[in-house]
Design a binder for these strands. Structure first.
Lengths: 279, 279
DNA sequence: CGTTGTGAAACAATTCACAGCG
DNA sequence: CGCTGTGAATTGTTTCACAACG
């Protein structure tokens, strides 16, 4: 009914519950499937954060951490951290803590980081340039293996060591180079078209910087990074605080009507939302 | 105890519940406060998405939408959309739908977009450049009013029309130009220091692209955009799918041990996490 | 009539609190 | 003893389903 299967993709939170997993039809393959399935979306996101904290500890030659220490480093509370870790197994020692290297290994395994994921970046504007430029995305693990744009002046020009291909060749190039993850850094208009081609090229995961809701078949995973949305959420919090502050003095009683919060600019949200056009 | 007040900031989801609002002490200021407070974080994020969809409709001279139509455009289901809209008031007409312009106005008001929010970008590397370069962030509403870096060669050079200042001047420049939102696009190492200065300069909201958990006083709102985390979440989903696929054929029974999912690269996650260093 | 607005139910995530164990 | 791992309680979010209403 709604967008046919645009799974997790969620304006901001992206910790959306995910419709698959219901399998109303039958109760098949319960065990093996659950290994990974059972991990809540929200926990997966945090595992990546823990991994970073752990890597940092490893660099400082720390060999053991307690849930409390790691929790502080990752900016969460220790109960949540322990619960999250419990989803991937029992690798701690009671009374002691976790061995850093073990935890790193287990999280990497869980996140599928033991496998290489070739990345394609589409849209070599400012952002695409930025993404392509630090030699090899997250260095190891996510090598940038293809770049695409439609600007004739860019085709063939190497950016970050990789020559830019034309977006008309997305399908074949993605197949050839076995691209797993597509990053869309194009203006909004082109994004859906690009997305379709990536999907046709066998790409199963898309990271979308364009301010549009992409329609994808359900086997494709989309995550969205949306600058405009982020800014607007921050704006909301500024507004709320001011409101609280003024509410504080009035004590109570206010209702609707000019909810005055220092209006100033009429606000051209259209153009705000056109951003990333040439990020 | 844990990071002193690093509010919403959450690895990925960022739809974290937020500790304030408890006010165990007394049941003060219930009405006025609730107007904004009552809106769930998750809904706020979506309001921004609806706003974009609505702006797009307005551009096409559509004057009225039903919750179903808007829901499709925004990539959510209509029940959620109606519930979200209900948090900001009752602006629909039963049997008809919503007037686009009214809804735009109300969402803008709720998100505090009727006020100008001056933005400072710190770290004029590839990403900072990209951010500064499309003349005036989300065009209206979020003007970029200051840029900072520590590279002597960059100081004074105008980027996107604004000369770069030195990060040592963050505090005074932010005060002068009344910066509301700080965007951190520096390498990880410098990020906390930069953050502290922004806060000292009166900045209440921070959008953080650096892969670190920032420590901030509780009145400061932090949101994080973390490329490495996004990639790793996608990686997880790839892995899960493959697992499911293989589990499908084995029917059942597998357990731990080499959870083979096509291992290939040992994976240098450290460097992966150092990314954005010079995004 | 068709669509909104919303209680109530279902589901998901977080936090609590403590048993269990090295 | 201290810290992990986890059921149970709590809190938050989504979905359902329908009464209200223009």
């Amino acid at each position: 009914m709604t967008a046919h299967g645009a799974d997790v993709q969620d304006g901001d939170g992206q910790v959306e519950a995910d419709p698959r997993a219901e399998s109303k039809q039958s109760v098949e393959v319960p065990a093996a499937r659950d290994r990974a399935r059972a991990i809540p979306e929200a926990a997966v996101a945090r595992l990546a954060v823990y991994l970073r904290a752990l890597s940092s500890l490893a660099e400082q030659d720390v060999t053991t951490v307690s849930s409390d220490e790691l929790a502080v480093a990752a900016g969460v509370n220790s109960a949540k951290l322990r619960k999250d870790l419990s989803y991937i197994g029992s690798y701690g020692t009671r009374g002691v803590g976790y061995e850093v290297s073990v935890l790193i290994g287990q999280i990497e395994r869980t996140l599928g980081l033991t496998r290489k994921h070739s990345v394609a970046v589409v849209g070599i504007g400012n952002l695409g340039h930025a993404l392509a430029n630090y030699g090899g995305f997250p260095s190891r693990g996510f090598p940038v293996a293809a770049l695409f744009d439609l600007d004739p002046d860019l085709i063939g020009v190497p950016v970050g060591g990789i020559p830019v291909s034309h977006i008309d060749d997305i399908v074949e190039v993605c197949r050839e180079r076995e691209i797993t993850i597509g990053v869309i850094a194009t203006p909004a208009q082109g994004a859906q078209e690009v997305c379709d081609r990536l999907v046709a090229g066998g790409v199963a995961c898309i990271l979308n910087f364009a301010p549009v809701v992409l329609q994808v078949p359900e086997h494709v995973e989309v995550r969205k990074v949306d600058l405009a949305v982020e800014m607007q959420i921050l704006s909301f919090h500024v507004a709320r605080r001011q409101q609280e502050a003024t509410a504080q003095s009035e004590v109570d009683g206010a209702d609707l009507g000019p909810p005055g919060t220092g209006d100033q600019v009429p606000g051209d949200v259209d153009s705000a939302n056109r951003m990333v056009e040439r990020l």
